[in-house]
Design a protein around this nucleic acid. Structure first.
Length: 541
RNA sequence: GCCCCCGUAGCUCAGCCGGACAGAGCAGCUGCCUUCUAAGCAGUUUGUCGCAGGUUCGAAUCCUGCCGGGGGCGCCA
C-alpha cells in the first residue's frame, strides 16, 4: 500500500538534496501529530538535520518548505513551521478519500499486508507445557500470544510454522507415573509428585502394568489429549507437535555432543560432559550429561534446536517461554554460536508471569500442588474470543494481574464486547441496506468527497494507519498493538455510528452511498484485525 | 552477589529506537433511546510519569546510581 507518509519522506529527502544535504528516511520521522492543529502529518527532519549539519533548525525548515511549496505533493494545502522546527503538513481531504478507495480495492485479503518478512522461514515454538497435567490460565495466556504472533507474522510475509514441543521424556514423566500408581493404590502422592485431582481421575482409568515409565507415558498421552482439546477450544492449532523423545531416540543428542566435542568445546569431569559455554558469553559452563550417564535437559535442547535450524532449515527460530525459563537462554544461545548457527537467529521471548486474583486472594500457581485454575474453566465461562482478547491486551514483557472473579462476573471489563459490537453494527447497517433493497453504484460513480464530517475523517485517518500498525506489531512481536488499534478504531466507529446516520430519511442518497463505502472499508479493517487476534467477528449481538 | 522484566490517575494498563500542553478503560458524577443494535454516545473529575543525578535545543522515553515489586542464576525440567 503506497502510503502518503512515505511520499512525504521521499519529498523531504528531495528537498534536502536540493540544499546539498544528504538525508535518508531512516534518520527522521514523518508522523501523525497528537493534535489535529499540528496538521495531518508532521516531521522533525529540520531539527535532525540541523544537528547533523550544524544549521539553525527553523532556518532549515524554511528552506525545506519553500522547496516543497514549489514542488508540492498531491493534495498538499499548506505547510507550517512550528515550535523548535517541526514542519507540519496540511492536506485536502481528497487524500483520505483516495485511501478509502484503496482499502475497498485491496479487500480483506490484501489490505494491511506487509512484505517485511520477505518469505523468511520461521519456526515459532510456544506453549509447550509439559504433559503432566491440564493447561492452566497462565499457559493459555502465552498460547494466545503465540498463536496471534503467528498470524501477524504471516500477514507480514514470514513463512511460519508453529510448534508445540512435547516433553515426553525425563524425570517429570517418571514422577507423573509414580503419582498415578500411588493414586491407583490409594496412597497419598509424595511431596514432589503431582497432587492434583486430575491424577486421581486418570488413575481410575489406568489398567496398564505397575511400571512407572509405562504409567507415565500413558498419563502423558492422556494429558496431551486434554491439552489439545483445550487449545482447540481457543482456536489454537499447531502445525507440528514435536516429540522430545524422538530426538533422543534418533541419536541426535549424541551427534550434537560429538559436534561440540570435535570443536574442543567439551571437557569431562568425573565422567560427566561439560559444555564450555562461557566461551560464548554464558555465566558458567554447563553439564550435558549427568552422573548416571543420562543427558541433561540442555543437551536435548541443543539437539532440538540443531534439528530446527540445520535439519529442517529454518532461518529464524522464535521460542516463547515463561520468564521462569530465563536461566536457560544464555546457555542455549551460547550453544547456537558454538554449533555455528548464530545466536542472532534465535529469538527467545519471555512471557512475564501472570498472576491471578480472585477478589482479594492472590492465586499461586503450582502444577504439582494442583491448585491452579484450568484454562478450560475460563474459556468455558468467557468464551474463546473474550479469553484471547483479554490475554492479548497487555504487552508480554509485563507481569500482569487479572481478577478472575471480576472478569467472570462483569463481562464489561473485557473490551471484546466493545470491539465486536462495532463490527456487529457495521454488519447491521449492511443488513438494513439489503432489506431496503439499496443498490450501491460502483465506487467510481460515488462522490466520496461528501465524507467531510469530523467523525468520518477521524475514521479514515485511523484506518490509514493500520497497515503501519500491522508491520510494527509484526516486527516488534507485539500483537497487543493490534488490540490497542482496534479499541481506538472501534471507539471512533461508535462515535460515527451515533452522529452520522448512514441509511435514513434525513440523509441524501448520495451521502448514503459514500457512507456505505466508508462502512465497508471499516469492516475490512476490523475483520483483518480481528483475524490477526483470532477473535470472532460477530454479525449481530 | 550476578542476570532479565516492571514501577505512569483510586484500580488495570497504553505511550518508551528523544519531540509540541502526559493518554485510555474501569470506578465516580451529569446528560442522551419516535430514525441503521443504548453491549452505545457526549460531558466531567483524577497525576512529584518510583527517587536522585547526567546527556540534549528538548527526557515518561537515553545513560548512571539508588529504592520497591516479580522472575531467574542445578547433574530439575
Amino acid at each position: 500500500m503506497s502510503s502518503l507518509s512515505d511520499s512525504i519522506a521521499a519529498a523531504l529527502c528531495g528537498a534536502m538534496e536540493s540544499l546539498g544535504l544528504e538525508m535518508t528516511p531512516s534518520l527522521f520521522v514523518v508522523e501523525r501529530p497528537a493534535r489535529l492543529e499540528h496538521g495531518e502529518f508532521s516531521t522533525n527532519v529540520a531539527m535532525v538535520a540541523a544537528k547533523r549539519f550544524g544549521e539553525k533548525p527553523r532556518l532549515l525548515a524554511e528552506k525545506i518548505c519553500s522547496y516543497l511549496n514549489e514542488n508540492p505533493l498531491r493534495y498538499q494545502q499548506r505547510l507550517e513551521i512550528a515550535g523548535p522546527g517541526f514542519i507540519n503538513f496540511f492536506f485536502e481531504f481528497g487524500y483520505l478519500h483516495d485511501e478509502l478507495v484503496q482499502v475497498i480495492d485491496l479487500g480483506e485479503e490484501s489490505f494491511a499486508l506487509s512484505q517485511v518478512g520477505a518469505g523468511e522461514k520461521v519456526l515459532l515454538e510456544f506453549c509447550s507445557a509439559n504433559p503432566t497435567g491440564p493447561l492452566h490460565v497462565g499457559n493459555g495466556w502465552w498460547a494466545s500470544y503465540g498463536d496471534s504472533l503467528a498470524r501477524l507474522l504471516r500477514r507480514c510475509s514470514y513463512e511460519v510454522s508453529t510448534e508445540y514441543s512435547v516433553n515426553d521424556t525425563g524425570g517429570q514423566i517418571r514422577r507423573l507415573g509414580e503419582s498415578l500408581l500411588a493414586r491407583r493404590a490409594g496412597r497419598e502422592v509424595e511431596e514432589e509428585g503431582y497432587q492434583g485431582d486430575y491424577v486421581k481421575e486418570l488413575a481410575a482409568d489406568y489398567s496398564g502394568p505397575e511400571v512407572v515409565e509405562a504409567a507415565g507415558r500413558w498419563a502423558a498421552d492422556k494429558n496431551l489429549e486434554i491439552i489439545r482439546n483445550s487449545l482447540d477450544k481457543l482456536g489454537i492449532r499447531f502445525d507440528v507437535w514435536f516429540s522430545q523423545a524422538s530426538i533422543e531416540e534418533s541419536g541426535a543428542v549424541r551427534n550434537v555432543l560429538d559436534l561440540l566435542d570435535s570443536k574442543g568445546l567439551i571437557v569431562e569431569e568425573d565422567s560427566k560432559k561439560i559444555f564450555l559455554s562461557t566461551r560464548f558469553g554464558d555465566t558458567r559452563d554447563r553439564y550435558l550429561t549427568k552422573a548416571e550417564g543420562d543427558f541433561t535437559y540442555l543437551a536435548g535442547d541443543i539437539a532440538y534446536h540443531y534439528n530446527k535450524f540445520v535439519v529442517r532449515g529454518f532461518q529464524r527460530v522464535i521460542d516463547i517461554f515463561g520468564a521462569d525459563h530465563h536461566g536457560q537462554v544464555a546457555s542455549l544461545k551460547a550453544a547456537m554460536d558454538a554449533i555455528g548457527v548464530g545466536s542472532q537467529h534465535l529469538e527467545v521471548i519471555l512471557g512475564q508471569m501472570v498472576s491471578l486474583l480472585s477478589g482479594n486472594d492472590r492465586l499461586k500457581f503450582s502444577k504439582r500442588k494442583g491448585n491452579l485454575i484450568p484454562l478450560e474453566e475460563l474459556v468455558d465461562e468467557l468464551g474463546p474470543s473474550a479469553t484471547r482478547l483479554l490475554s492479548l491486551s497487555t504487552s508480554i514483557d509485563r507481569a500482569t494481574s487479572v481478577d478472575v472473579a471480576k472478569v467472570k462476573a462483569q463481562s464489561m471489563d473485557n473490551p471484546v464486547y466493545y470491539i465486536q459490537y462495532a463490527h456487529a453494527r457495521m454488519a447491521s447497517i449492511e443488513r438494513v441496506r439489503d432489506q431496503r433493497g439499496i443498490v450501491v453504484p460502483d465506487i467510481s460513480e460515488v462522490d466520496l468527497s461528501l465524507l467531510v464530517h469530523p467523525r468520518e475523517l477521524a475514521l479514515l485517518r485511523e484506518m490509514m494507519v493500520f497497515p503501519q500498525i500491522v508491520e510494527e506489531a509484526g516486527l516488534e512481536r507485539a500483537p497487543f498493538k493490534i488490540v490497542n488499534w482496534l479499541k481506538e478504531f472501534s471507539g471512533l466507529f461508535h462515535s460515527f455510528y451515533h452522529d452520522c446516520y448512514v441509511i435514513s430519511d434525513g440523509v441524501e442518497m448520495e451521502l448514503t452511498y459514500a457512507r456505505l463505502y466508508l462502512v465497508a472499508s471499516c469492516k475490512i479493517a476490523v475483520r483483518v484485525a480481528l483475524s490477526l487476534l483470532g477473535v470472532e467477528a460477530l454479525e449481530q449481538m
